[in-house]
Amino acid sequence: MSDRQHHRPMQRGSSFFETVVGGSDPAEVSEAADRAASLLVRGACETDDAEVAERLLHLADTEGIEAIAEVWSGSPADSLAGCLWRLFLLRSWVYADPATVAAEYEAGRAHAQVARVVAGVADPPGPDELRAMVDEVLRGIAGSDFADVLFRAAAFARVVATGRATLAGPSEAQVRRMLVLAEQLESAAHAELDHGLV
């Protein structure tokens, strides 16, 4: 016979959850993400301070794209938080691989004329020009209509998706991902015009 004492199993009532120590409540994280995005976008538009635009632009550099992802990556595409995540992700990608981005953009611009004009990339679109364009787009969060920011980013993503489709290297999944990003940003821009994103 064992000396081990047997205990009744703990009842998992309401007090059980009060004693669990662990991760953050997803609802609270989502609410905080939405509030932060709203303050960044709506608050930035109400100021003429150039330093605010620069701080917004370099948010991913100072905080890290991983920190931003942790807060905003799970947000819906048609929310301010979801849009900010996609914009910062786009900028991080352009900075991480500007030569590839330039090649894909160059390949797509002849086949997506309207999107090329809306994106507003200098001609010819080299790595430096693409970095300058994506920075200008993000500065626009503080200095222009947020719908315009989204339309420009969407147009840029559409040209890149078109370019990927014409090149031999990118996979069909890579083309589709960029096209979905373009469609999400464009849809969000229309929603921003119609009723304002939250």
Rank of each mutant, 00 (worst) to 15 (best):
A81Y: 00
S75L: 05
D148R: 09
G143R: 13
T166E: 10
S75Q: 15
G126P: 02
L57G: 01
P127H: 02
A119I: 13
A77C: 05
L59C: 09
A188E: 12
S38T: 13
D135M: 06
L57Y: 03
A115E: 15
H6T: 06
Q184I: 07
S30I: 09
Q184H: 15
G22E: 05
S38V: 08
H195M: 10
D49A: 14
F156Q: 00
A168E: 11
E46V: 03
S75H: 10
A33G: 12
P26D: 07
M133R: 11
Q11P: 10
D148K: 01
V198L: 11
G22N: 08
F146T: 04
A69M: 03
D25G: 02
L87N: 14
A50Y: 07
V20T: 06
V52E: 06
E18G: 12
Q5N: 07
P98A: 00
S2K: 01
Q113P: 14
E31C: 08
L138K: 02
E172N: 04
S144N: 06
A69H: 07
V134A: 10
R8P: 01
L59I: 09
A37G: 12
M10K: 00
V118R: 14
W72G: 03
P170C: 14
V121P: 06
L84T: 06
A173I: 14
R109E: 15
